[in-house]
Structures are given as C-alpha cells and as structure tokens.
C-alpha cells in the first residue's frame, strides 16, 4: 500500500462514512478504503474526526462504531479566510469544489439539471 497522507485518508474515511447507512466499525471502514488501511491508522483518523465533530460514536459490544454527523460546525466562521476572494480568484494551493457561475452558465446549467431530472 502506498503511504497516504493523513489529510487524504481523512477525506476517504469521510467518504466511506457518507456512503454508508448507519454505524461502521473501524474494521469495516478499513475494508472499504481503496487499498485497505491498518486498524490503528483508521482509529487515528477517527479520533481526529471525533475531535472535529465530524463523526459520533456508539459502543457496540466492546468496540466503538462510528457514523458521519458533520452537522455541528466545529470551526468558527470568522476564522475562515475570505471565501469570496477565493471563489473569484482561484487559488493554486487550495482546490475548491466549484466556483461561482456567470449568468449565462447558470442558465445552461439549470437546463442541464432539468434534463437529468427528466431522466430519473
């Protein structure tokens, strides 16, 4: 297994938890990570996430099981850097999921979204 950075693993663990309904044990999570991950590594990540209010846990038998919560903001908004600056002036180090749209794009995108709605 290639050495993965904690930040990347953290995002992957969150993805696994988001894709699962209900609680998962660290072993389940490790199995679902691409390439697998050691139990202790997964636990380290889970403790970090617990600290950040991203997951909560429950005791099941002797071990803990975890699920995604992420609905309690763990970080204060005023400490967040200028998002608007970032949205309109893309950064090379911080990749954003999407950027703002201009009116023409917005129209095109709404049309696309309606189309896929029809397919479903």
């Amino acid at each position: 297994m290639s050495r993965r950075k904690l930040g990347q693993l953290e995002a992957e663990v969150l993805a696994v938890l988001a894709g699962a309904d209900g609680f998962l044990s660290p072993n389940d999570i490790g199995d679902r990570l691409a390439g697998g991950a050691a139990y202790t590594t997964v636990n380290t990540i889970l403790f970090r996430l617990l600290d950040k209010n991203m997951v909560d846990r429950e005791k099941r038998g002797r071990a803990y099981v975890y699920r995604l919560t992420a609905d309690e903001p763990g970080l204060a908004a005023e400490r967040m850097f200028g998002h608007l600056r970032l949205a309109h002036n893309p950064s090379a180090v911080l990749s954003q999921f999407v950027h703002g749209l201009n009116p023409k794009e917005e129209e095109a995108l709404r049309a696309l979204l309606d189309e896929t709605e029809g397919q479903r």
Binding site: K52, N53, A70, P73, A76, A77, H83
Partner: peptide, 10 residues
C-alpha cells in the same frame, strides 16, 4: 491551516 479541517459555520 489556522482554520483546521472540518465543518465551518458558513
């Protein structure tokens, strides 16, 4: 990094 990772209230 000063913000840390997680959910930010925004």
């Amino acid at each position: 990094r000063a913000v840390g990772t997680g959910v930010v209230a925004d």
